[in-house]
Design a binder for these strands. Structure first.
Length: 356
DNA sequence: GTATATTACCGCCACT
DNA sequence: CCAGTGGCGGTAATAT
């Protein structure tokens, strides 16, 4: 089959996905969950490949732990009836056409797109989406894919998000949606929407976590060398600290409480108070349980949060420092220098996902 | 980059 | 005796 390809990486991904499709066709009796990703014309490679790779990596991990009958069947489907989707970069995906997506789907993801393209089979596609929303266990979007779900009416009265740059537009165009621009992804019932591009990876990781547990999701994240699995809401553990969950109740509670209150100025003494311990004893036990002193632990959380905001938002340095409890942009810069050997401005320039 | 103030950390010892 | 706890004070790290 022909495809347009500008780099070896794309070729590899196409091959991987194709193999998965073959695997699916020859093995219909297993209990694998069928993942269908709808590729939009002018999508970015990462929109589709990110989630696909997460599920593909999860397969390796899951199979080694639970056997070959578990895991995912990954399928990429063209929104149009073409079997090639031309992306923004000019590279192409080999896809199955919409018709081939008949049958039971476990999870349906709609990837984002760059510009509103020719849309010949719009109604047919939206009808199909509506039908699927009643049949599939989960349905989700990456980036501007949320607009497609919205157009099909799937997001009405629901909480949702999209690329931060388009949140306002989404809200204006579809007033019934409760658009939240802050989270990486939003779950409302069985509908999942995620923010800009790389957030699709986070969403996929969250779905893997839902299906097979946190441990496997974290393993996948690490294998993909994702530095952190950013929580959709802001209430979960950091991936850097994920395996340091304390065995002692009050400390564990504190670990859950901390990420949601990073903006507060918290001294070790305050934390000790929260655990009803003396400062000395608290610091000692905390370090023993988590592997980090309380101060270092909070620092790690704060830097992680700051990184997320630098990547995913357009907030100013001061605003980010404020939200992360880092006091001032100056303090944040020093802390970045210590932890990441770079400064926040450079970091944002290099890692911002707002590429569109 | 430096100087000063503040906070965190940790060894030590006493107490339960 | 022990294991866990808490207070003190010096030192190191960090904020401003």
């Amino acid at each position: 089959m022909t495809f347009i390809c500008h780099c070896g990486h794309v070729l590899k991904i196409v091959t991987l996905i194709k193999l998965n499709n073959l695997d699916m066709a020859t093995n219909l009796t297993d209990r694998k969950k069928r993942i269908v990703i709808v590729a939009m014309p002018t999508t970015m490679l990462l929109d589709v490949a990110g989630p696909a790779d997460v599920f593909a990596r999860a397969n390796v991990t899951v199979e080694s732990m639970k056997g070959k009958s578990e895991g995912y069947k990954i399928e990429i489907v063209s929104r149009d009836n073409s079997d090639i989707v031309r992306m923004q970069s000019g590279a192409g995906y080999i896809c199955n056409t919409l018709e081939s997506a008949e049958g039971e789907i476990d999870t349906l993801l709609v990837a984002g797109y760059n510009i509103e393209p020719e849309w010949q089979n719009k109604n047919q596609f939206l009808e199909w989406l509506k039908k699927m929303s009643g049949e599939t266990r989960r349905i989700g979007s990456v980036c501007k894919g949320a607009f497609v779900l919205a157009e099909a009416g799937l997001l009405n009265k629901r909480n949702a998000t999209t690329h931060w740059k388009y949140c306002r537009e989404l809200q204006q165009k579809y007033p019934d949606i409760k658009v939240d621009s802050d989270p990486i992804f939003v779950k409302d019932g069985n509908i999942y929407t995620s923010a800009g591009i790389s957030a699709g990876i986070d969403l996929a990781l969250a779905l893997v976590e839902e299906d097979f547990g946190r441990e496997i999701a974290i393993t996948v994240a690490r294998e993909l060398v994702l530095y952190l699995k950013r929580p959709g809401s802001q209430s979960q553990f950091s991936i850097l600290l994920a395996d340091q969950e304390a065995g002692i109740e009050p400390i564990r509670n504190l670990q859950k409480w901390l990420p949601e209150h990073l903006d507060k100025q918290l001294s070790v003494e305050d934390l000790a108070e929260k655990c009803s311990m003396s400062p000395r004893n608290f610091a000692r036990i905390f370090a023993k349980e988590t592997g980090h002193t309380p101060g270092k632990y909070m620092e790690i959380l704060r830097v992680e949060r700051a990184r997320r905001l630098l990547e995913e938002s357009s907030l100013s340095m001061d605003q980010i420092a404020e939200k992360c409890g880092l006091g001032s942009a100056d303090t944040m810069r020093r802390m970045f220098q210590r932890h990441l050997k770079t400064n926040p401005v450079d970091y944002r320039r290099n890692f911002r996902t707002a590429l569109i």
